[in-house]
């Protein structure tokens, strides 16, 4: 396939993905906006005022970066997992399989689609947070890099989940039983300095902790971990998950007989 044709195919997949999640915006864009607003009101305003200062910032300012990251992670993941799995379920994935689109373009298209929704939600939540706190950016490149790479990473995760899923239950197991606990325990609502030594150690094996803290560093300038190590980790994970995804596509795992 020629380069310009590949670019057209990539744009087609991305456009289709964006058209899908904007067409069903009450299911895709509205819920995270409502949920995050409730977090801001309940945890930030009502409870946060009694918690006081954390890492030198009022509680609302402390949780905003984590909540933005939480929205980006879940939206990126769920966009790809639900879109790709429903294509498998309806067999419309065959439209792509019979076409000459290279596997890496298919993967790039879906990941970009997931990132479009994830980053779009991130922007919506950020704008909503401005109604509750003043956001100042400490390190803009770190903010942009972290949020883009994290969104790409979880889009890849969603893609692998969709490739492996054989029924609708399979696409909710990972978000419910793995992603949500890891996010809640990933330092969104607290600094790991508050935990006993053992649990601090356990927290350090949670990859989401690194992403939340790298993003918090970009915004507030404080972090429980070295943000550059966090960025390097995300890049390593993206490399591994990309390789796994491409291998699955090449073998036709779950999509070819």
């Amino acid at each position: 396939m020629r380069t310009d044709a590949m670019l057209t195919a990539y744009k087609t997949i991305v456009t289709r993905e964006i058209r899908r999640f904007t067409r069903i915006w009450p299911q895709t864009l509205l819920p995270p906006a409502v949920t995050m607003t409730l977090y801001f009101i309940i945890f930030g305003n009502l409870i946060g005022s009694r918690i006081g200062v954390m890492d030198g910032f009022d509680y609302m300012s402390f949780i905003v970066p984590g909540l933005i990251m939480m929205a980006v992670i879940t939206s990126s993941y769920s966009n790809v997992v639900s879109s790709f799995f429903s294509m498998k379920f309806q067999r419309s994935i065959e439209e792509l399989l019979v076409s000459p689109v290279p596997n890496w373009i298919i993967l790039a298209g879906y990941v970009t689609g997931g990132m479009s929704r994830g980053l779009g939600i991130g922007l919506i939540v950020t704008l909503l947070s401005l109604g509750f706190t003043d956001l100042s950016i400490h390190h803009l490149p770190m903010v942009i890099l972290t949020v883009f790479l994290t969104s790409a990473l979880f889009s890849l995760g969603g893609f692998i989940n969709a490739m492996l899923a054989t029924k609708f239950d399979d696409i909710s197991i990972v978000p419910t039983f793995i992603l949500t606990p890891l996010t809640y325990l990933g330092g969104v609502f607290y600094s790991i300095d508050m935990l006993p030594g053992f649990w601090q150690g356990v927290s350090m094996i949670n990859p989401i902790l690194y992403m939340v803290n790298a993003f918090r560093y970009g915004i507030l300038g404080v972090s429980d971990v070295n943000p550059y190590i966090a960025l390097a980790m995300i890049v390593v994970f993206i490399t591994i998950l990309s390789a796994v995804s491409l291998r699955m596509l090449a073998r036709g795992k779950g999509i070819r007989h």
């Binding site: 396939m1 020629r2 310009d4 044709a5 590949m6 057209t8 195919a9 744009k11 087609t12 997949i13 456009t15 289709r16 058209r19 067409r23 429903s86 294509m87 309806q90 419309s92 439209e95 792509l96 076409s99 000459p100 689109v101």
Partner: peptide, 19 residues
Amino acid sequence: FNQFEKVFDIVTTQAGYYG
């Protein structure tokens, strides 16, 4: 095909996959 998509979109999207 995706049952929720419009007829025209289904056909043009397929063309897009062919570049």
